[in-house]
Design a protein around this nucleic acid. Structure first.
Lengths: 373, 373
DNA sequence: TTGTATGCGTTATCAC
DNA sequence: GTGATAACGCATACAA
C-alpha cells in the first residue's frame, strides 16, 4: 500500500491536475530517469554529498545531473522549506506598495542594493504583496504570516505593526527592518546614521562662521526625524552655539508653514543658516527654498541652506544643497547581509550606516553684516 | 510505528531545532486542545466548512477558534502551499537587472501594475534577473529554468531567447511575455496596440491638413518597431496620402543620423510633419527635436512633430508631443491576469491593450505656404 | 556507495 | 458531523 511508483500517477486523494498540464518534475522523476533512488537525487542536487563525507560516484552524479537538466528540474520551495526549513528565498515586505504609482515614495533605491546582495549570497527574492489591496493573505488577521515561506524577511517602511513583527521575532523567524526602530525588542535593523551626519552638517555651517542656525523639521516622531534633530543639537553644542527651543521649528502643521514672512523675521533675528529635513515628498526643502527666495534673500550670499538628506528628483537640476546623501543601496545590501547572518543562526544586530557628506553649493560664510540691519 | 502523538516530541530523523527555538503550534495541537481531530481544525480554520456543504457545529467551530487563538496558531505557508500543489508564487524575469541604476531603462511602470494585480489575485512575486550572476541557482547552465519554482512566470524585455521560452511553453509551464512576440509558437503575451495608436496619430496629422508626413524609426525589426510602421502606413493610406518608401526613414546607423541638414532638405521637399518612434533612451525623439530646432524650424508653427510613445522623463518639462501613451501599469496588470488564467488551466491568449491618444502641443496645421518656397 | 523509511504541517477524500 | 488516512515534494538517519 502507498508508495506507488514515481511515474505519472493519478494523484489520488486530490482533485485531478488541470487537464493537459503535467505538473513540474519532481526528484522522483529525475531519479527514475537516472536509474537511482530519490534520496540519491536529493543528495546530489543539494551538493551536500561530498561536503558531509557522503561520497557519491562521479558516474552517479553525472547521471543525476543530466536527468535533472533534461527534465528541467527545479526544487519546490515549499517542499524544501517544509522538509529542511530552508529554501534560499528571502522575503521583502513593505506596508505600502513596493512599486507605488508615485515614484517619489518608492523603495526603489533600497531594492537596488537588496537585489544585488541577495544574488551575491545566493538567495532569490520574494516580494510579498501583502501591503496593497489584498495580497494573498487578504482577510486574515495577519497577512504577515505568509513571509514564513521564506527563510527570512526584510521589512520596509515604518508602518510595520510592532506586535506582528514581535511575534515573528519571538518565534525566532529571521527578520530585519530597514530603518532604525525601537520596538519590538530584539528586532534587527539597519538604519542610516542621521545623528552623525546631521551633526557634521551643523559643524560645517559653524565652520563657515554661522552662529545662528535654525532646523526646520516636520512634526513627526519617527526615529528618522528625532535622530536628525538630535544630531543637529549635538552639532550646535559641539560648536558652542546656543541650543534652545528656538533652534528648531516644527513645521508642517497648518498655520506653521514656512513663509517668506517668517523667514524674513528669522533673518532679522540673526539667523544666517537654515537646515531642512528630508521628507518623502521633499516638501520641506521645497517650501524653505521658496520662502527664502520670496523673502528676497539669495543663497548662499544672504543665507545658507542645508538639507539633511537628498533633494527630490525633480530638483536634480538645481545646485546641490549642503547636506548628506543616504546610501540607500548600501543600506539595502547591509540589511541582506544581516538577514543572511540571522538565518545562519547569528544573533540579531542593529547597524547604523554612515551617510555621505555633501558639500553642496548652498552654503557660504554668513553675510558680513547682519542681514536685517 | 510512526504516528507518535502530537505532543512536544523530539523531531526524530532530523537535526535538532536551533537551541531556544520552540516550534510553533500546529493544527494537531490546536485539535488536541479543542478535543477534535486535526482535520476538523483544518476545515474550520480554512473557512471551507460551510462552503463545501460540510456543516460543522457552531459549538465545534468556537472551540477550535478559541484553541487556535489561545495557542497563537498561525498556519505554515510552506505546508499549505505544498499540500495545495501550488505555491502562489509568480515569477518575474527580466533580462537586465530588475532594478537598474539607470531608471530610464527600467521596467518600473510595468511592475506597478504587476504588483497591484498580483496582490489582487493572491500571488506573491519572485524576482529573477538574467543579468545577475547569483541567485539560488547560480552555476546552472541556464538561469532561465529557475523560474519553474514559481507557478508561472512573466517575462519582460525582448531579449528572452526563443528556444528557452519554447521549452517552457512546451513543458506546459505557464508563461506570459510582456510585449507582442511572434515566436515561440503558443506563447501567451500582452502587448500594446501600436498599430491602431500609430494610425490614429497619422490620422490626427492628416486632419490638421498635413499631406507629407515622415516617419523616423530605428533600424530594428522588433514587433514594437514594425507595428508602429505598419500603423503609420495604414494611417497614410486611410487619409489618402502617398505611402512610398520615402515616407519612412530608418535612422540610427552611422551616417544616417537625423541632422539639421536632412531636416531642412525634407522640409524643402514638402514634408510638414515628422513622426518619431519611442526608443529606450528617447534618442530618436531627442535627435529629431534637436535637428528641427537647429534647422531653424519652429514647432508647431513651421513643422509638426509627433512621438509614437512617451517622451523620456528628463523631457517632462517640455510641451507634450502629439502621440500616445503606453498604459504600462495596465499592461503589467493584464499580463498577470493572463498568467493567472494560464495557471488555472485556461489556454494561452494573446492580447493587445489600447494606448492612450495624447493631443500634445507639438502639432498644428501645416504652414500656409510650403516651408521651402 | 546507494536505497529504505519516515517526518515536515497541511489539505482533501472517504468511511464512520 | 467527525475522524482516520493518504498524499504534497524533499531531506535525512540508518540499513544494506
Amino acid at each position: 500500500m502507498a508508495k506507488d511508483g514515481a511515474g505519472g500517477r493519478a494523484r489520488p486523494g486530490r482533485a485531478p491536475a488541470p487537464a493537459g498540464r503535467r505538473s513540474r518534475p519532481r526528484q522522483a522523476e529525475v531519479a527514475e530517469l537516472a536509474g537511482v533512488s530519490q534520496a540519491t537525487v536529493s543528495l546530489v542536487l543539494s551538493g551536500r554529498d561530498d561536503a558531509t563525507g557522503r561520497a557519491i560516484s562521479q558516474e552517479t552524479r553525472r547521471k543525476v545531473m543530466d536527468a535533472a537538466r533534461s527534465l528541467g528540474y527545479v526544487p519546490d520551495p515549499a517542499a524544501s522549506r517544509l522538509a529542511a526549513a530552508r529554501n534560499n528565498l528571502l522575503g521583502v515586505f513593505s506596508f505600502t506598495a513596493t512599486f507605488p504609482t508615485d515614484v517619489r515614495h518608492s523603495y526603489y533605491p533600497f531594492l537596488v542594493g537588496v537585489e544585488q546582495e541577495s544574488a551575491a549570497q545566493g538567495y532569490d527574492l520574494v516580494l510579498f504583496t501583502g501591503s496593497s489591496t489584498g495580497g494573498a493573505g487578504a482577510g486574515e488577521s495577519s497577512a504577515l504570516h505568509r513571509v514564513r515561506l521564506a527563510d527570512g524577511c526584510l521589512f520596509l517602511g515604518r508602518h510595520a505593526p510592532t506586535d506582528e513583527l514581535g511575534r515573528l521575532v519571538a518565534d525566532g523567524f529571521p527578520v530585519v527592518h530597514l530603518g532604525r526602530r525601537v520596538e519590538p525588542e530584539g528586532l534587527a535593523w539597519v538604519g542610516a546614521d542621521y545623528i552623525s551626519a546631521s551633526r557634521d552638517v551643523v559643524t560645517a555651517l559653524a565652520g563657515l562662521g554661522h552662529r545662528r542656525v535654525l532646523l526646520v523639521r516636520e512634526d513627526d516622531d519617527a526615529p528618522a526625524s528625532t535622530d536628525r534633530e538630535r544630531g543637529f543639537r549635538e552639532g550646535l553644542r559641539a560648536a558652542g552655539l546656543p541650543d534652545g527651543p528656538g533652534a528648531v521649528c516644527r513645521s508642517g502643521d497648518p498655520g506653521r508653514e514656512i513663509t517668506a514672512e517668517r523667514v524674513r523675521q528669522w533673518l532679522d533675528e540673526g539667523v544666517t543658516a537654515f537646515v531642512a529635513e528630508e521628507t518623502d515628498t521633499g516638501a520641506a526643502w521645497r517650501a524653505l527654498r521658496a520662502a527664502v527666495d520670496k523673502a528676497g534673500a539669495r543663497c548662499p550670499g544672504d543665507v545658507s541652506l542645508a538639507l539633511l538628506g537628498s533633494p527630490p528628483a525633480d530638483l536634480a537640476g538645481e545646485p546641490p544643497p549642503l547636506g548628506f546623501d543616504i546610501p540607500r543601496p548600501e543600506l539595502g545590501a547591509e540589511a541582506v547581509r544581516l538577514l543572511s547572518a540571522l538565518i545562519s543562526g547569528e544573533p540579531a544586530e542593529k547597524k547604523l550606516v554612515t551617510c555621505t557628506f555633501r558639500p553642496g553649493r548652498t552654503a557660504g560664510p554668513p553675510p558680513a553684516r547682519p542681514a536685517a540691519t
